[in-house]
Amino acid sequence: MTVLDVRDVTKVYGEGGTAVQALRGVSLTVEQGDYVAIMGASGSGKSTLMNILGCLDVPTSGRYLLDGTDVGTLDDRRLAIVRNRKIGFVFQSFNLIPRMSALANVELPLAYGGVKAADRRRRALAALDGVGLSERIGHEPNELSGGQQQRVAIARALVSHPLVVLADEPTGNLDTRSTEDVLDILDGLSASGRTIVLITHENEVAARAKRVIRLVDGRVIADRLQAAVDGPPPATAQPVGGAR
């Protein structure tokens, strides 16, 4: 099943002589269960593409279909619903609410979605247990290490059982050990059938994905499968959560 379908998408910021063309006719599809790394230097358009995939921005031209729905036809209210229900976000800077516990942070997307309190609590506890943080549920972000904060962010991304997880430089603020922990979780999610798209500038991170897309000056210059070359995910990876 095709989860993400990008068709000849362009994105231009500004007008006239100051216009910047961030994307130049990008086309790609992501199938259910894909584990995709999007790579590119600063200014290549990878962050712009991720924002469009996450329904945080809209193309200047072209079409983007999420789970078969043309995102360009949705009003702001329906777009917000789609983001909440079908996309799980993981950011480089974690984006946790400072004065809320890990548990409350993970419950947040469900609260926005109108899920009842008891069900929110049950699902958030399960998500935190899945990333190995069942003993840190009452800790606020400033009481957690960077790696633990990112694991909370992953639990928050998973708690609504999204169609796709979008991770923007998820290891960018982590040390080597925490990076390995987070990548092992992503490997496990992929092994369980989750669809994952991540942005990274690190070859070591991209090597864990099944497929690598490279952008240069707003264009896709390479899109290759690498399982046959690089082999399967490391044996330490454990499935986390259920596939959708």
Rank of each mutant, 00 (worst) to 15 (best):
N95M: 14
S44Q: 08
R208S: 05
K86F: 08
G138A: 11
G132E: 05
L198A: 00
V58C: 09
T179K: 04
V164D: 08
L4G: 07
R120I: 03
I81A: 14
E31L: 13
E180D: 13
R123K: 15
L96Q: 04
P234G: 14
L125M: 15
V82Q: 11
T60V: 02
D230C: 10
C55Q: 10
A104M: 12
I52M: 15
V9C: 06
V131F: 01
Q238N: 11
M39D: 03
I199S: 00
L128A: 04
R224H: 11
N203L: 13
R99S: 15
R99L: 14
E135P: 08
Q238H: 14
L56P: 10
L158M: 15
G172V: 00
R194V: 06
A117P: 08
I213K: 02
V216R: 15
G146A: 00
R122C: 06
G231F: 06
L174M: 04
V216M: 09
V71P: 12
T179D: 05
V115R: 03
V164P: 10
G43M: 04
A228R: 13
T200A: 00
S190E: 02
R85D: 12
A104H: 11
I137V: 15
V36C: 00
Y64L: 12
D67L: 09
Q92H: 00
A207H: 12
V58N: 12
S27E: 03
G231R: 04
